[in-house]
Design a protein around this nucleic acid. Sequence first.
DNA 1: ACTGACCGACAACCAGCGGACCCA
DNA 2: TGGGTCAAGTTCTTGTCGGTCAG
Length: 452
Amino acid sequence: MADVRLVYEGGTIRVEGVERLTDAAPDGAFSDIEFDPRSETGRVPAVQYAALRDRLAELDIDVDDAVFESASLNLSSDYQLREYQRDALGAWEGNGRRGVLELPTGSGKTVIGIAAMERLDVPTLVVVPTIDLLEQWEKELDREFSVPIGRLGGGEQRVEDVTVATYDSAYLRADELGNRFELLVFDEVHHLGGEGYRDIARLSAASARLGLTATFERSDDAHRAVEELLGPVVYRIDAEELAGEHLAPYDIKRIEVELTPDEREEYDRHQEQFTDYLAKSSITLTSGSDYQKLVKRSGTDPRAREALLAKQRAREVMMNAQRKVDRLADLLDRHRDDRVIVFTAHTELVYRLSERFLIPALTHETAASERRAILDRFRAGEYSRVVTANVLDEGVDVPDANVAVVLSGSGSEREFTQRLGRILRPGAGKRAILYELVTEKTAEERVARRRR
DNA sequence: ACTGACCGACAACCAGCGGACCCA
DNA sequence: TGGGTCAAGTTCTTGTCGGTCAG
């Protein structure tokens, strides 16, 4: 009879016979196994399964391992990896099949994921943030592999040996999926830093884990949590290095605009109200966590809330400055033969621009069918321009464009990288241009610096 | 099968000048 | 000496997503 038996149960590994380990192992070697008085067994979070299994093997402890039911799938595809894709996959395998690959949008992350699945040939769960990506992966996997492809999300709940799921669905069913898949592939893995989504990885016993993203680091440091669940970044290449051969060469141009006198007055007034409050309350604002404290405070202190609202209004003035719109007119004129995407931070401005320049608008309010129609026409060349808030930042298959105009945006490096990625795969080897419109002598100059 | 309304989750959200205090 | 912190039980607002459910 085996000394120890391992069983998966609702996101944990039940360790039966844990009491026998104290005799077999040096003191404290298994102190991280908690004793569960209800089942009278040991118990660890499923994420620790691989490490536990390896330690038991090292000590020659006889284990009855019932966590997975393994079966070979005979996955095979005929993709040819590019050199950097092979290097990336190699780095991941070299790190014990754990870790994150940081590659720019358009560099073929899906291809690497599929190659990893083929190499390991085990049941695999691919996790994606949007329905759009769900469908792209599903289509791709269906074309490459001859096994049925499962799907969790977008109204379907079908589990197969190879399954694609949204973060939301995977999260809702994490405890029952934890021992179904031996390889996890997370697309846009920075989402896994979210408080709830982490459970997908924590409650899974899969020992092979692959994360894909263009921007791993998060301003809130939550990527540290992802590192613990998945492993660190093991390979990184940026758009600069691929520009020319695999991605379009590009330029980034910053255009500074002034506020109109009215806007300046309004901006200064609101900004002052904000800074006055800070001065009176002797608050320092140097980091994101300081700002969070201020937000907390605004829950009880009406003056703090007023100050935040004033700051918000100042931001709106600065981001939606009239002269940005004027400059946009110039740019649209200059690029009348190019394919242009205009990005803003506010929905309302999207509609104003849409009316003034007769450009189709895409926001979160745009119904799915209309959205599809606009993107189809953009793809077909019927439309050469589109104006959007944040809808197209991630997870939508956007037709190629070669000019991006960022009227306003957050200071987030991620948002910037994603928007840049939207113009990096044009055909005909055209040079891509990203214009960044920034209002002079406002906080926007700082914001623009921060995002790069 | 689709739509809109609802919900919860997630992300970004960041003066300017300057000093006192604590700790490694 | 150099670097971090300096106000807490109650977390602003806007934009976007997926899941669910009623019609």
